[in-house]
Write a protein that binds this DNA or RNA. Structure first.
Lengths: 203, 203
DNA sequence: CAGTTATACGGAGGATGCCTCCGTTTATCA
DNA sequence: TGATAAACGGAGGCATCCTCCGTATAACTG
């Protein structure tokens, strides 16, 4: 056992870490995922070595920044748990996400890094909150016959981010994304149309 | 007016340009959009200066490579013009696109560059062929009541690329993308479900 | 075919960014 | 008030970007 009593983390380390995260939000949010990390360090007022000590890889920095942003989205999902109309709750939640993304456009590029690889592990807790809340709503939608079987919270997130990501900033960005997203949500209904040619289908 | 009679382009220039495009297909297709351009020049067996003379920016190179790949997709769209079931034709075309994208995974990153900015102008002709064919199919779908109003070819492309792009390579990549895409296609039906909460809906 | 010239070639080199390494500084603890 | 573990900063080696310009050569001309 020995003494596991570690020394308290140094105050300057904590402060610099926070400074770096703030700087990263700004610089990466503006310059996209290829922004210079030296610029981030400079904006934070620390040396480049300090940045790399705290965040050994570019991904580490993205993950940390992104986690902070995501907490808010998890809260929204929670707040919609008891909503009376599940399908509209889903729609509302997705729209909120889009609105949120809208303000962080520059971070979009980072999504391709963040939403991939082993982010499941990195975001297990947050992801759990969101997934649980959304799946809860989906289950109620299935029960009420509004939503087909086999849809997961991940499907929704995936599609939403995909649509946000693919569309370049522009005057009609949001309305276009929402329009396509609504079509997708409409498609969540139980076989709105026979899904594939092989099905005899009702006349 | 003077003499606009220009000199014939030099043979070596044409040859090197072709070599560069081939090399770019390979190197960019493998290494993604951040692959080294010097590696492209090296593989083509030309100097880096030659590469930059032909393609002043990274985007220029992407555009050129991509255009060649896209011709094939335009052909598929054309071939589906006369298909008897418009909605299934749409589905089929989208699936073909996904299959095509699957073989060029490395190019996916380039899409964010290619599909954005002023690509309308760069691809006006190709885009015209695709758009015209797909819109033709869409129109027939509207006429037969299978497809709602207001859907454009661009909507479909946008969504498909978005879904392809957002999902990381993996064993189930294709099936997942196709599943989400099918949901979207189902959503193309005229208000499969009342689009917004205000409608009383049928019991 | 030889001379002229427009055009293209190649790669050196300055600029920038990545990341590592290590001598110096400083916060914590006794 | 020391001792020391922890953190700091930035120099420096390496890679890539892109420009610039002296050299080479294909296309034209007589």
């Amino acid at each position: 056992m020995a003494e596991t009593r570690a020394r308290k983390p140094r105050a300057d380390a904590l402060k610099n870490r926070a400074l770096l995260i703030d700087a990263a939000k700004e610089v990466l949010g503006k310059g996209g995922p290829n922004a210079s990390l030296e610029a981030v360090a400079q904006r934070a007022g620390v040396g480049i070595g300090t940045l790399y000590r705290h965040f050994p890889t570019r991904e580490d920095l993205f993950h940390t920044v992104f986690r902070q942003e995501m907490e808010e989205l998890a809260d929204i999902a929670d707040s919609l748990r008891g909503s009376p109309d599940p399908l509209e709750a889903i729609r509302h939640w997705l729209h909120s996400n889009v609105a949120f993304v809208e303000t962080k456009r520059g971070m979009l590029g980072a999504l391709s890094i963040v939403m991939t690889d082993e982010s499941k592990r990195t975001y297990a807790d947050l992801s759990g909150r969101v997934t649980s809340a959304v799946n809860d709503i989906l289950a109620r939608g299935r029960a009420s016959g509004q939503i087909r079987d086999g849809i997961t919270a991940e499907d929704l997130l995936q599609t939403m981010y995909a649509l946000c990501y693919a569309r370049q900033p522009g005057p009609d960005w949001k309305s276009q994304v929402l329009r396509l997203l609504d079509i997708f949500v409409d498609g969540l209904a139980p076989t709105a149309q026979p899904t594939n040619g092989s099905n005899p289908a009702r006349a």
